[in-house]
């Protein structure tokens, strides 16, 4: 299956803004970030199709994943 992964802020360094990742069926969020060599502590916000997701959630074919390190402002 294929998912689109959007990366932001410092996570873009050496990875780019958007990548397409091919994964095995049943892959979780944790599996995805492991495959992309992103450490768990760098993931503050993990959105699946714009909604809050958890790293243990399963990823479906065609999902759009957005990953953010800690960000804030206002």
């Amino acid at each position: 299956m294929k998912v689109k992964v959007r990366l932001f802020a410092t996570l873009r360094e050496d990875r780019g803004k958007e990548v397409e990742v091919e994964g095995k069926a049943g892959m979780t969020g944790k599996g995805l970030i492991d495959q992309m060599e992103i450490s768990e502590e760098d993931v503050a916000i993990f959105l699946i199709n714009g909604k809050d997701g958890k790293l243990e959630d399963p990823i479906q074919d065609g999902d759009v994943i957005s990953i953010f390190p800690p960000v804030g402002g206002g």
């Binding site: 802020a9 410092t10 390190p69 960000v71 804030g72 402002g73 206002g74």
Partner: peptide, 11 residues
């Protein structure tokens, strides 16, 4: 990290 690097517009 976030605020010094990107400012508040990181949001």
């Amino acid at each position: 990290t976030g605020l010094p690097t990107y400012g508040t517009a990181v949001l």
